[in-house]
Design a binder for these strands. Sequence first.
DNA 1: CTCCATGATTTTAC
DNA 2: GTAAAATCATGGAG
Length: 362
Amino acid sequence: MTRATSCNRSWPSPTRAWTRLRPGKHALNCHRMKSALFSVLCEIKGKTAVSIRCQEEDPPDAQLLRLDNMLLAEGVSRPEKRGRGAAGGTATPGGCPNDNSIEHSDYRAKLAQIRQTFHSELEKYEQACREFTMHVTNLLREQSRVRPVSGREMERMVGVIHSKFRAIQRQLEQSTCEAVMTLRSRFLDARRKRRNFSKQATEVLNEYFYSHLSNPYPSEETKEELARKGGITVSQVSNWFGNKRIRYKKNTGKFQEEATMYTGKTSTVTKAQGPGGQSRCQSTPSPGDKAVALFDCACGPSPLANGTDMALTLRALAFLQPPPGGACLQPLAHGSWQRTTAPQPASAPAGDSGRSNSDASN
DNA sequence: CTCCATGATTTTAC
DNA sequence: GTAAAATCATGGAG
């Protein structure tokens, strides 16, 4: 308590706290025996080899390396970078096509936020590290006037400081990693969540489905088109058609209303254009009648009874008639579609047999 | 909370 | 590989 002597006010010190503990420095500096004492101290120090063990700069820590790699892979370590973040390319969590869904951009935004926080924190630590190093260096320099402080000792001290800050930095990296992992898992979960399609998407799909009731198998191109129109992905279109076919088939009656609604709606649209490029001529070749009758009696008063769609269906079914070996579809007795041969010939080969898939005409 | 509709995933058949 | 069928899981209405 009494150590803080009267003279501590006069010290032009960088740190008052420190200087308060060194009351006799001025006195020492001015002491006539100073140089003698100093040399003795040097000698003693040399002999005892003040080997304050350097905590040798830890070897490239494996754990740290892993963290670095992880952050690098997540695109966090690098300051803003285009593309290929964790969410980029095929690395998209969930393995979904890299559509730019809202969730996707949301994920990227959050990742960017984490990255920003990480870098600003890192910057702060580095700044603090620099300041503290300078501070300590100054102190040592100051002290070197009264006691021997070798360059090596200074270096060692700086090294210790750096390693301490490195440990803090490692913690920062760890927590950043955690944040990224949490974000990722949450994002993955979010993608699993089912979201109802927009009204528009449903309409687009239903319109196509009911106007191609005889053959609701859109080609890849058509799927892309439908996906684009509905603002969903191609695989979602495929899923939807898969579900729709099976559900429609299972319970045709339930879809009656919907069917009439859409066939009514599409009839006006398709007359002008015809989604499959099919011209809707009203001539109804008789060969299809049997098939329609078969379909109808199985399905009851199906949407096929609708005038426009009836024509379409008859027309489509007409192609089913003579397919010895040709790829085509046949409505099953219970109102289904059945492939008799190779599914989706991708593109219709010349000739009508390929027309089984009305999409081919697209 | 239940129930149903519906999008997604998994399994099966070809 | 594709589609059918079964199943899972969630959203939303009641």
